[in-house]
Write a protein that binds this DNA or RNA. Structure first.
Length: 227
DNA sequence: GCCCAGGTGGGTA
DNA sequence: TACCCACATGGG
């Protein structure tokens, strides 16, 4: 048996990739937009983030220097649809301020460097926790840093690959120690997990946290465990 | 009306 | 370290 089949993470990826095909993910046009979206989507449905992003785009504020020049109240109003708007407006302003304070306003420059060093620098920013940092690293910076989100955790629990009590870092390590450090692979893997969960939620389950992922898995190949 | 969403930071024991 | 809570809008 090849490693493809003996490694459960390889097997899950193959099933999802065969079913959905290449996704080449993060719905954003620029690295800066990725970072802004990553902050705005914290504990928030993406459909709400889209409204906020559209408002920012209309004002030209998807560029760091423009966002920096916005008053706090204006920024709050633009991102209001994404929820937690006061908190997130502060985080966005702190983020762009840091960009200009240490990196000439360039996100690319901030992200240029060894993965671990850049990750530590991101985590030092107020409002950027592990998931947001990894999303920015992977989707804006092209770093092979695996993103663990609620969907990832839910899927692994359903597959009994974790018991549910694991920390973010433990789950991230589980992926990164069992997969090659490949940016494209991590990009696709996380995107496929989100696609699967949204697909399942759209079709069958009124509440995502209760999705019977395995029993309705569209690949049909993950249905060999009770939900 | 009620539940939940691609988290994070601060407070308390 | 391990919980608990605030943060807020919009869709099902």
């Amino acid at each position: 048996m090849s490693e493809e089949n003996s490694n459960p993470l390889h097997r899950v990826f193959s099933l999802l990739a065969d079913h959905y095909g290449p996704l080449h993910w993060w719905p954003a046009d620029t690295p800066f937009e990725v970072a802004i979206g990553a902050i705005l989507t914290q504990n928030t449905a993406w459909t709400n983030v889209e409204k906020a992003i559209a408002n920012l785009r209309r004002e030209g504020a998807l560029e760091a220097h423009v966002m920096r020049g916005l008053s706090r109240s204006t920024l709050e109003e633009l991102i209001r649809p994404a929820g937690f708007f006061r908190q997130k407006a502060e985080r966005l302003h702190l983020f762009v301020a840091h960009l200009f304070a240490g990196h000439g306003g360039s996100l690319e420059r901030l992200l240029d460097g060894p993965l671990d060093e850049v990750r530590t620098a991101l985590l030092a920013q107020k409002g950027i926790g592990p998931e947001t940092a990894d999303s920015i690293l992977l989707y804006a910076g092209g770093h092979p840093s695996f993103v663990v989100d609620a969907y990832t955790r839910r899927l692994l629990e359903r597959l009994a690959l974790i018991d549910g009590g694991e920390s973010y870092q433990q789950i991230r390590s589980f992926f990164m120690e069992n997969l090659p450090a490949d940016t494209e692979l991590f990009n696709e893997y996380h995107a496929l997990i989100v696609e699967l969960c949204k697909d399942v939620c759209r079709k069958r389950a009124p509440r995502c946290s209760l999705c019977p992922l395995l029993s309705v898995c569209p690949t049909g190949a993950l249905t060999d465990s009770p939900s």
